[in-house]
Amino acid sequence: MLTVTSLSRAFGGVYATKDVSVTVPEGELRGVIGPNGAGKSTLFNLIGGHLRANAGSIEFGGARVDRLPVHRRARLGIAIVFQGARLFPEMSVLENVMVGANAATRAGAVAAALRLPSQRNEERGIRQRAFAALGRVGLAAWAERDAEALPLGQQRRLQVARALMGEPRLLLLDEPASGLRAAEREDLSELITELHREGMTIMLIEHDVSMVMRLADKITVLDLGEVIAEGTPAEIRRNQRVIDAYLGGEAAHADAE
């Protein structure tokens, strides 16, 4: 499904990702962990097209995508949920989600432009699906509110609902649980598990290592922009390099708390 080969991106001579190769087969839930500044978000930005790589290639569904602009990759089925909210502030929660259906029109802009407003059935279908997506992320009760009025955690869930409207084939979640309360985290974990069970390919960046260990099929560990380990959660837990670079410190940190 996704093959990243020798991907590098430098900012002013400092590598944010260096020679990163990752292959994610269809239907896998891949965790991506690493200390701050390990290059996790940069990797997602490169896959989504928000940054251009200095070197390396990205293949998605058998085709090179690394030269395509963001909206083309979105139409191919790559969806990203960022930590920071990227919403349409003047629209209601429901409208925000409905706009997400744009990414599902794989036929492209011309076909979309030819659709007439009179196609009420389609509009109604999109509205129903948007409600369903809001229900899945637990925001159905907020549908008519202004998107801007939502607390940050819910704005992120709104982004997930919007991403789902685009029927993504690859869902990139950048720290979806940060800033959420325990109960919300639990709901989110359940949602991710459910999407995974339905066969969606997912990549998950998360600081909450125990959450990643619980959910992921395999985990890629980044440190200083490079892949230092890859394997099942059990393998990662035992990996000495990971323990030294990251988990050890994290465990000690957790103990201190």
């Binding site: 989504g48 602009p69 963001v70 909206h71 083309r72 979105a74 139409r75 969806a79 990203i80 990227r86 919403l87 349409f88 502030p89 003047e90 629209m91 409208e95 409905m98 706009v99 997400g100 744009n102 990414a103 599902a104 029109t105 979309a112 432009a113 659709r115 407003p117 919007r162 409207m165 685009g166």
Partner: peptide
Amino acid sequence: YVGKGLTAAASNPRAARLVGI
């Protein structure tokens, strides 16, 4: 459909790109 795309692009271009506009 297109009008909503225009509104979305006007409201937040970065978010609009995310949804394939």
